[in-house]
Amino acid sequence: MKRYGPKTVRQVPPEFQNIYAHGVGISSPQQLLFLSGQIGIAPDGTTPSSFEDQCRQAMDNVEALLEDADMTLAHILRVTYYLTDAKDLPALTQIRRERWRAEQAPAVTTLVVAALANPDLRVEIEVTAAI
């Protein structure tokens, strides 16, 4: 995988370099994985009320799917985060730094949307990964 950030584009600030890359490319992947958006619902069907707990559960779900595909966080090319409240952006950034900090960060898009499929949901995480 190769990360892209030419000098002709604003450079990623140091505090975001381990959680964000402008672009990520691959050549001849052996395996390409597209995960559907993962939400903060636990295997038993419960949904935590807090944004932080939902975010951590959605990350747990992503990690379980990666493991099932014999991949790790290091194989993530792109992440899209959907949040229903802009006030949760600082918490998302903190949790990303705690959980998904990487020497080679993925390409990232974060969107604040009016709602997700269930009104109790506060975050959804979509991932593309490759080996």
Rank of each mutant, 00 (worst) to 15 (best):
A42C: 07
H75V: 05
C55H: 06
R97V: 07
N61R: 14
A91L: 12
T46H: 06
P43G: 05
A74H: 03
L66R: 02
T84R: 01
Q54D: 11
L65T: 04
D53I: 12
D68Y: 14
E63G: 07
I39E: 07
I76V: 05
E67C: 15
T84E: 02
D88L: 07
D70E: 14
Y81R: 09
T47V: 15
A86C: 09
M71S: 00
A69N: 12
G45N: 08
D44V: 10
I76P: 00
N61K: 14
D70V: 12
A74P: 00
A42Q: 14
E98C: 02
G45P: 02
L73N: 10
E98W: 02
I76K: 00
L92E: 10
P90D: 05
L65G: 02
E98H: 02
I39L: 13
I76W: 00
A86S: 13
Y82D: 01
L83E: 04
L83M: 15
S49R: 08
A91I: 12
T93S: 04
P48M: 13
R78M: 03
Q38V: 06
D88Y: 10
T84L: 01
E98R: 03
A69R: 10
L92K: 08
P90I: 11
E98Y: 02
I39G: 01
Y82N: 04
E98S: 06
A42L: 14
T80A: 09
V79F: 01
R96T: 05
D68K: 15
A74L: 07
D44W: 11
A91F: 06
D60M: 09
L89Q: 11
L89I: 15
V62K: 04
A69V: 06
A69M: 14
A64D: 10
T72N: 01
I76Y: 00
M59D: 12
D68C: 11
P48Q: 08
T93Q: 08
D70R: 13
L73V: 08
T93C: 06
I95C: 05
I41A: 07
V79H: 00
C55M: 13
A69Q: 11
K87R: 13
L77N: 02
D85L: 08
P48Y: 08
Q94P: 06
R56A: 05
D53Y: 05
G45F: 02
I41M: 15
Y82T: 00
I39T: 13
R96K: 12
A64C: 09
V62R: 02
L66G: 00
T72A: 04
E67F: 15
D53G: 12
C55F: 07
M59N: 13
I95R: 03
Q38I: 06
I39P: 02
I39C: 12
A86Q: 15
P43V: 01
A91E: 14
P43R: 03
H75I: 09
A86L: 11
E63D: 14
L73Q: 11
D68T: 13
D88F: 06
L73T: 10
L66I: 04
A58N: 08
I41H: 01
R78L: 03
I39K: 10
V79P: 00
Q94Y: 08
L73D: 10
